[in-house]
């Protein structure tokens, strides 16, 4: 493989990372809202949140992507395929992240909030100073895990024509008749990316010190 082709693969790997990162951030934002809605006392909020989480976790990402990619033009919204792909990835990861966050919020020990209550912190101060920081720390490992899952899942956006790492490997193997080489290189690049994120996550976890509480 010439250096030129390898450079193309590297470029595509970068695109995969960028698209995944954008989806993770958008997904985290939507996930926080969905989690808040799910934890709300009002049924009008919690029921739609439950349905959202159940649907996007229950349907294969490939089907979600095909649906969104074809649905948007059908209802008169024409967007580039990369936008449809990011919307699909974001909605899917939002559902998983909402569940992770809910787990985090629910595992903050009740006693820590009682202690906050006793020293006079208002409900809002309790959320801001105690509940949210602890919940986010508890969610961190799940968030790193989710980032790795989305990096791998982003290979599916190749089917809607986004030229990320998998699609690039597909194109190059088709034009050079060397699928073994290009899919191996793609696999190797995915490995490097995933292992880097996992290592970074482990480091971040060690830096944010928490007790078991």
């Amino acid at each position: 493989m010439s250096f030129k082709l390898f450079e193309l693969m590297l470029w595509a790997a970068g695109y995969t990372v960028v698209l995944s990162a954008i989806s993770i951030v958008i997904g985290l934002t939507i996930g926080l809202c969905v989690c808040a809605a799910k934890l709300a006392r009002s049924r009008a909020l919690s029921i739609p949140a439950t349905v959202f989480i159940s649907f996007f976790r229950g349907v294969p990402l490939l089907v979600q992507l095909l649906l969104i990619y074809n649905l948007l033009p059908a209802i008169g919204i024409s967007v580039p395929s990369v936008v449809a792909a990011v919307i699909g990835l974001s909605l899917c990861t939002a559902a998983y992240q909402a569940e992770n966050l809910r787990g985090g919020f629910n595992s903050v020990p009740k006693g820590l909030l009682e202690a906050a209550d006793m020293v006079g912190l208002s409900p809002w101060q309790q959320l801001k100073r105690i509940r949210a920081p602890i919940a986010l720390r508890l969610t961190l490992p799940a968030l790193v895990n989710e980032a790795i899952l989305i990096l791998k899942a982003s290979s599916l956006i190749s089917v809607v024509g986004v030229i990320e790492l998998t699609r690039m490997a597909q194109n190059l193997s088709a034009s050079t008749y060397r699928p073994l080489l290009f899919y191996s290189v793609a696999g190797g690049l995915y490995l490097v990316i995933c292992w880097t994120v996992a290592g970074g996550g482990a480091l971040a976890e060690r830096l944010t010190r928490t007790s078991r509480a």
């Binding site: 791998k152 899942a153 190749s158 899919y183 995915y190």
Partner: peptide, 9 residues
Amino acid sequence: NPFLIQLFL
């Protein structure tokens, strides 16, 4: 790495 890459390989 992704299942799709493994499948293609």
